[in-house]
Structure formats: C-alpha cells, structure tokens
Nucleic acid binder design. Structure first.
Lengths: 315, 315
DNA sequence: AGCGTAGCTTGAAACGATTCACGATCTTTG
DNA sequence: CAAAGATCGTGAATCGTTTCAAGCTACGCT
C-alpha cells in the first residue's frame, strides 16, 4: 500500500493521525519490511559487502567492525565475506555480493584481479580497496613500505646488526611492501646481504610464527633482531623463543605489525607497527557511501594513512 | 525469460544444445542472477543467518566458518552478524536477517530472549540455538557442566587444593554452567568454600585475563590451580603470570576452555577443554537446512556433544 | 457562493526472476 | 502419409515494495 510506504520512507508527506495509525498497525501485526522487494524496486540495496582474507586475524575483524559501525550510522548494513586465503573463494564472495545486489564492496583482495575489480565497478558498484592501491577505484590503506622501514630502523637503532625477516607469502602485496621497506632500510644502514635472512612462511598465523622460531634457532650465527610481517607471526615466534629459554628482547628482539589487541598482553608486550584500523575502516565506508550517493561526479581517492611505531618491551 | 530460468534451475528440462547456447550467452554478457528478485518470487532466500556475540573470539569465528562451509555445500550462503556483547545490537541483527528474508538463523544468543526466538520461529524461520538449549527449537552445543567438571577434576587430580575460577559474566549461560560444573566437582572432592575463589570478569578477553592475573597475585595464600572460562582469559592470565616470574605449571597450573588455535602455540601450551566446534557448526547447519526443507513434520532436536580435555603443558 | 489549491490518499505500473499453462516442433508409428 | 505423442520453448501472472500520477477533501480567497 502506498501510504504505508510513505510512512516508512517519507513520513513528512503523511498526516500525523494517519502516520500514528499506520505505526500502530505495524507494531501490532509485527510487520517486517521485506528488504528484498524493496531493493528490487529501488535497484540497489542498502548493504555494502566487506571482503577480507581471514577472520582469524583480528586485524581484519577490527577493520571490518569499524567499517560496519560507520555503515550502520548511515542506515547501511554490512555483508561479511571471507576469502580464507583462496582465490576461488574470493571470486565466490564477489559473485555472492553481486547477486545480493549490494551497493558497494570494501575489499582487501588476495590477488588484485584488476579486471574483476573494474568489472564490478563497471556494473555500478562502488569499490574501495583496503590495504591496497589500484587504478580506477578508491582505496584506503596505511603505507606498508614506510611501515616496514619503521620496524627495521627501530631494530637498527638498537644496534642490531643481524636481522631476520619473517614474512607471509611475498606474492601478497602488503607483505611484500613491508618486506621491501624493511630490507631497503637495512641496506641503507649499511647491512650486507649476509646479515639479512628472510623466512617466507606460507601462512601468517601464530603456528607459522612458532615454526619460524624453531627454524631461527638453527641459524648460525643467530640473528638478534626479528621483524615479523604481522603480529600473529610475532606472537607465535616470541612464545616459542621464550619456551626455548631465549630471552626477549635482551637476546633476540622482535617487532610485529598491525598492533592487534593481543599484542599488548603478550608474554613480552609486543613492539609493533600500528595500522590505524579504526580510521581505515571508517574512511573506507565513507568513500563507498560517497560514491553510491553520487556516482556521476565522484572522483576516486587514494587515501594513504601513516603507520606508527608502538614501542613496548619486545624490542 | 522462461528458458533462461530453466537452464539455471532445472537444466534437465532443456535440450543440451539450447542449454549450451544459453550458458554461452550468460558467460558472454556477464549476466548475474538477481538473487533479490529470485527470492522475492520464491518466498525465501538461500541464506542462513549466523549470529554470534563476537568475532574477536576465534571460537565463534571457527564455529561460524564450519557452519558456513556446510551451507555452501548445499547451495546456501551465510549472512554474518555480530552482537558485540550488546543486546540491542543482537536485536538489530535479527531484524536485519528477517528483512533480508533468510531461511533460518543460527544463533548463539547473549540472553535467551525466549519470546523473540519463538517469534522468529513463528514466522517460519528455522532457528538453531548454538551453545544453548531452548524450548521449541533445535539446538546444538557441547555440555558445559561436564566440561567445567572435566577441567576442575584435572586440577584436583594433580593435587591442587586451592582453586581459582576466572569466569566471564555469570549472567551468560554457558559461562555459568562451566562454573557450576567446576564448583560442584571441587565440592565433591571435599574442597571447602575457603579453598575456592571466583573472579567474575566483565569481559572474556586476553586483557581481562591479564587483569585477573594481577589480582590473583594479591591473594594470600596463592591458589595453585586456575580454571578460566575461555582460552583468551587463560592466555592473558598465563602471559602475565610468566611475566611476573611465576612458573606455569609448577607454581600455578592453568586450564582453559574452547581449545582455540592459539592455545597450542601459547608460551606454555594450554591444557584446555575442547569444544568440537567444527562438528557443532556443521550439525547446526544440517538441522537448520533439514527444517527449511520440510518444516511440516520436522521435530526439533537437542544435540549435545561431549567436551574433551586436551592436556598440554599448562596443567 | 464558487472556484482554486494545497495537502493527503489511492491505485496501478514497475523492478527481475520463477512458474505454469499453453503452443510449437519434431519424432514415431499405424 | 497422417495423426498422436513427446519434448522443449513462449508468454503472462506473480512475489512485496516503491513511485508517480490522478483523485479526493477541505479550506481559503475573492
């Protein structure tokens, strides 16, 4: 019925008496608006997709939460999708979101399928890249290269001269950039190849960090400073080092990346590079909503925030 | 167009030649089925809602992932919602899911709003309670009382005679049951009130565990065995104990609950009570799909799985 | 008193896929 | 060769909401 619709969407057009009568009926009958029909008619839904590689990593969970909070404030809702490290699943997520008729997508892509992204965008979806920069769409991220450099320089500043870099898959852009930044900083400080070791772990979990620690202990000479590409790796690594009787930070210092909540309560509170994930999530949502609001004269923005070194006890 | 619909939904009715022709066109034009219109016509969508209190707790993330995997195998998709510990947000989640026209809801409720649940169910949604039992709907959970008893008896078996229980809010059902089970087991073993202490933390995070450890160290005499209501509490507590120079498990032993992945790689690998979260998630989905498939003669089942003690090093 | 108008309400079309009854084509058989 | 039957394609109605045009009321103005 037309009037009911007006009550819900443009209450000012409806006389107060009628409005109250309708509201009462709604409450009484337990009427629930069928968002599905609504968005069929309107052409696009009031939802934004959030695609992240993993929910096991608190960094992404927090990032998404911040984004969701910003959406809710604007009457939008989040549709969460996890690619779980699989490109196929990532594709499935995007298909799902398009089928669900979302207005836009916030995505931290595994592998930047440039064409898939522009496809999406071509079909009228607002797309915002998280932690990445791309062409032709908005993006929000903290700059990983300076972030990596920040970590390395902190270790160098504490007189460490043999460094180990524990990374995730270097095919993953942000990880590669952090590594590049760190390596460059180390070279600039005059360290030679032989003073730099890199372990490329297949995953970025605490378990992978534990495994890296075991491998670390077989090195000769031992490195004295370790930079891990994320906090989960760092936490697993530190735990294993401590178990093996290695003193952190006096014998080996460790720096992580992300500053997830667990970092502060680690057995050795973690020195780490903070990404402003609350800001990242919020800004990503704002960009997406701005684009859906006025797709015509929207110019894509590349927002780059600065990472920040948080010094605790591990280095 | 009718034929296209047949190709998509009942391919056997369509001649192979036509089918291929249509499929080719679909691929070519980048056609994407509008799930919104589809479900408007069909009356209900191919999605199931997943409502959990928090994504920061890996237990729920894993539980949901298992449920989602089972859905995907049956052509369903998951809509994730987090109540973030707020009853209001939980309500919002359910409203959202109903508006989105989901076929059913898997929910680990904060506070069992009995009427809200039956409302949902009355409107034809399949409802499955996670970690809870309720009336009139299906439920899946591991039995928390025996789980708590398992933990307490393990400590008692190792000759601990002064126990501390670190719980979350006792208003939260599963937590209260774990606590009850543990307390009962301790009393059955002849421990007196004065040998039992309980810290009721407002949250169940590592930070809350750290705080509990600090408070623990002010007790006199010190307890020698600690049972934490979940692993995050336990991990935060252990880390802080170790930092303070307390030896775990020789001076103080700690048992957790859930067996999240991080438990195995902790600085002292955690002895904990495992909930079979993969099974829980899968079974929950199966129950929900069974109910949506044949709502008429579906009888609600209360599936109760057994928790299992995983002995590592912390106790 | 008559007419114009503002303010509300009503009714019908539209969104895109599904579904079902009907019609067309091709095959088979008496 | 013709008719019946099987198989597949077509068109129209439908789901629940929005949207827009048209209709109705009541009020104000001259």
């Amino acid at each position: 019925m037309g009037t009911v619709s007006n009550v819900l969407n443009r209450p000012n057009l409806v006389a107060e008496a009628t409005r109250e009568r309708v509201q009462a009926s709604i409450g009484e009958l337990g009427f629930i608006r069928n968002e599905t029909a609504r968005q069929l008619r309107q052409g696009r839904g009031h939802t934004l997709g959030v695609v992240v590689p993993s929910m096991a990593n608190p960094y992404f969970a927090d990032l998404g939460r911040a984004a969701e909070a910003a959406m809710n404030a604007d009457g939008f809702d989040a549709l969460w999708c996890t690619s779980d490290g699989s490109l196929a699943k990532e594709e499935r997520c995007l298909d799902f979101l398009e089928e669900q008729n979302v207005s836009g997508v916030l995505i931290s892509p595994l592998d930047l399928g440039e064409d898939r992204i522009t496809d999406l965008h071509g079909r009228g979806l607002a797309v915002v890249l998280l932690d990445r920069t791309g062409t032709g769409v908005c993006s929000v991220g903290a700059d990983h290269r300076p972030g990596g450099a920040l970590a390395a320089r902190h270790l160098l500043g504490r007189r460490h001269r043999r460094l180990l870099f524990v990374t995730g898959p270097l095919s993953f852009g942000p990880v590669r950039e952090r590594h590049d930044g760190a390596v460059r900083a180390a070279r600039d400080a005059g360290l030679t190849e032989s003073a730099l070791t890199t372990f490329e772990q297949p995953e970025m979990t605490a378990e992978a960090g534990r495994a890296a620690a075991e491998r670390l202990l077989t090195l000769d000479p031992l490195p004295t400073g370790v930079f891990c590409a994320n906090d989960l790796l760092a936490l697993g690594l530190i735990n294993q080092l401590v178990r093996a009787g290695v003193k952190v930070p006096s014998e080996i210092s460790v720096v992580g990346y992300d500053d997830i909540d667990l970092a502060a309560t680690a057995v050795v509170p973690l020195t780490t590079v903070r990404q402003p994930r609350a800001d990242l999530g919020r800004i990503a949502t704002e960009l997406a909503l701005a684009e859906t609001g006025d797709p015509e004269r929207h110019d894509h923005r590349q927002v780059v925030l600065s990472p920040e070194l948080i010094v605790r006890e591990s280095a």
